[in-house]
């Protein structure tokens, strides 16, 4: 299939309605679960869902727009748009090669997402924000600097730590959710083959407990 045809199929009307909802989920879910006080933010779960259901390019658009629209809430959000785009792309390609088909593969996808996100976020954090983005992680960066680490390494270490757990859980939850959808429903999406090839869906007991 030619790339332009692929894009045309990926951006179906269903995808076009999915993306705004995914953007809103990216923006809202973090606040929803903030009362649980867990060290995760789930701010890319919508992008990962789009990546599974509609492919990397739609997911990249979801990431980009999430951070542009988030700029209305926090003006520094758009600076991290490259991270969101890369997360969408990587998740989309992982889905394409079948990495959303078993829980351990999904975990690997999550690890990969966390690493790539940190790789892209680090230069932005260092060059644009001087290595600091407020909040508790800045204390940790200060500590690493004080013990003699260089700025880039310190920021990367902290970013990896905060991202990996979040992205692994994000990927796992996104996968569980897609499994909950009926086959008829999944087939509405342009990349249905990413999940529908999955024959041995885990039983509920494995997923919930």
């Amino acid at each position: 299939m030619r790339f332009s045809e692929r894009l045309k199929r990926d951006f179906s009307t269903t995808t076009l309605t999915l993306i705004p909802l995914a953007i809103v989920l990216n923006l809202v879910l973090g606040q929803t679960i903030s009362l649980l006080k867990l060290p995760i933010f789930l701010d890319s779960i919508g992008s990962v869902l789009v990546a599974i259901l509609s492919g990397p390019w739609a997911a990249a658009v979801t990431g980009l727009l999430t951070n542009l629209i988030g700029g209305v809430i926090n003006p520094f959000f758009p600076a991290f748009a490259p991270v969101a785009i890369v997360v969408g792309l990587v998740a989309g390609f992982c889905a394409k090669v079948g990495w959303f088909r078993a829980w351990w593969k999904v975990t690997l996808t999550g690890l990969l997402l966390g690493l790539t996100a940190a790789l892209v976020a680090t230069p932005i954090r260092v060059l644009v924000f001087g290595g600091v983005t407020g909040s508790g992680s800045s204390f940790f960066i200060a500590y690493l600097l004080a013990t003699g680490s260089a700025m880039v390494q310190s920021v990367f270490a902290v970013t990896v730590l905060t991202n990996v757990l979040d992205k692994v859980i994000t990927a796992l939850i996104a996968w569980v959710i897609v499994l909950r959808l009926s086959r008829r429903y999944i087939s509405r999406f342009p990349r249905a083959e990413n999940v529908l090839a999955l024959e041995n869906a885990p039983t509920n007991e494995e997923v919930v407990r």
């Binding site: 999915l18 995914a22 989920l25 879910l29 929803t32 679960i33 959710i177 909950r180 959808l181 429903y185």
Partner: peptide, 12 residues
């Protein structure tokens, strides 16, 4: 998280 995301997907 699951009902919120599923609900959104079902509306799509």
């Amino acid at each position: 998280v699951v009902p919120l995301v599923l609900g959104a997907l079902v509306d799509v």
